[in-house]
Simulated scan of single mutants.
Amino acid sequence: MSVQPLVRDRIRDVEEIRIQAFSPIEVLYRHAHIFYPFEPTMEDMKVLDSLGAWRDDGRLGMEGTLHRFGRMDTAQQTSLVTVRVAKAFVGLAEPLRPWLEKAQDGVIIIGLPGAGKTALLRDVNRILGERLAGRLFVCDSSNEILGDGIQPHSITDWLSRVPIGDPKLQLSKLNMVVKNFQPRWMVVDEVSSPDDARAIGYARSRGVRVVMTWHAGSLASAYQESEERTLWSLIKRNEEGITGPCVAQLGILVRGRGEYVVFENLTEAFASVAAGNLPLGVQVSVAQDTPWENREQALSG
């Protein structure tokens, strides 16, 4: 079984490949979803087990790449595999360089699932790493930032890599990094639980600045988020409203790949949201590389 000939000519546009026994091969491209008339047998699926040892969460990384395999089994035989084809886009964060080079108090990248937060985060790490080098610790929750194998992707450069792999281990790993390695900055992808927020709060109390991603479509939705109120302690709010400065001051709202809104002072921006006003942001585009001011509501539809 070989999927490569099916996607070779459009590999740069491939986002995900789904291989299921006795079903057509599915390929999700950036702008298309295509079914190919090739149906692998269970014998074909056995080839996928030769890639390496699957973890308990059904995941497996490909050494030296950002690609990740996810597996489901039937009667202890691999019956479904999804291949997440991740890419490193060098230059994706270049329009944000003026803000990143001056950032002294943390960065929050906000966006909906699939908007491109992690892709942007990789390139943000590259720019921050130019001045922070090994004092920037990348705590890789699901090993999606720098790769899931023992051998990292080449974009690692001088960054200090902390593979976690299982989000349930994130709290203990983050605390271990803070206690044992004295990082100046720490990167955390997918802040999604109270434990994540506690670990970030602990890091901040030790003087560590944090770069993190949040699932939210706007500052207003992040402020109003009610599921376990995970982000409230990071925004520094309670039922009455804002109680202190946000855990990071530079905010980047990802509208899509290469399309961002920059909030230079998140504390002031969230205070505007709390007061029922529209926070002012600077819209930035990789394509145009020309910032201009615009109100968030006009950008969030």
Results as ranks from 00 to 15, higher is better:
M42K: 06
Y36E: 05
E15Q: 07
E39M: 13
L28W: 06
H31D: 07
I25Q: 02
F22H: 14
E16P: 01
I11L: 13
E16C: 04
V27L: 05
I25D: 02
E26M: 12
A21F: 03
R30G: 07
R10E: 14
I17F: 00
T41Y: 04
D13P: 04
P40D: 01
M42H: 06
Y29H: 00
S23W: 09
I11T: 10
E16I: 04
F22Q: 14
L28R: 07
D44I: 12
P37N: 14
L28K: 05
I11C: 06
P37D: 15
E16D: 10
I25W: 02
I34L: 14
V14L: 03
E16Q: 05
D13L: 14
A32V: 06
Q20G: 07
A32Q: 13
P24L: 00
Q20S: 14
V27M: 04
I25H: 02
F22W: 07
H33R: 11
I17T: 00
L28A: 07
M42C: 03
E15L: 10
R12A: 12
D44Y: 05
S23T: 14
P37Y: 14
E26Q: 08
H31V: 06
M42L: 13
T41G: 12
R18T: 11
D13N: 12
A21I: 10
Y36F: 15
E26D: 05
Y36W: 15
D44P: 04
V27Y: 02
Q20H: 05
E39G: 04
R12P: 01
P40T: 02
M42E: 09
A21Q: 12
R18F: 10
R10S: 08
A32P: 06
R30Y: 09
I17E: 00
A32F: 06
V27S: 02
T41D: 10
H33L: 11
E16G: 03
T41C: 04
I17V: 10
P37S: 14
E26S: 07
P37V: 14
A32R: 08
P37K: 13
E39C: 15
E16L: 02
Y29W: 04
I34E: 11
E39Y: 11
H33W: 08
Q20A: 13
E15C: 12
E15H: 04
A21T: 11
P37W: 15
Q20C: 12
E26A: 11
F38Q: 13
S23M: 12
R18L: 11
E16H: 03
D44L: 08
S23D: 11
V27I: 06
E16F: 03
H31C: 09
R12G: 05
I34P: 02
Y29A: 01
H31L: 13
I19K: 03
F22K: 15
Y29E: 00
H31P: 01
I25T: 02
E15M: 08
V27T: 03
R18E: 07
L28I: 11
A32L: 11
S23K: 09
R10P: 06
E26P: 00
F38V: 13
P37L: 15
T41A: 03
I19L: 10
A21M: 08
H31K: 05
P37T: 10
H33E: 09
V14Q: 02
P37C: 14
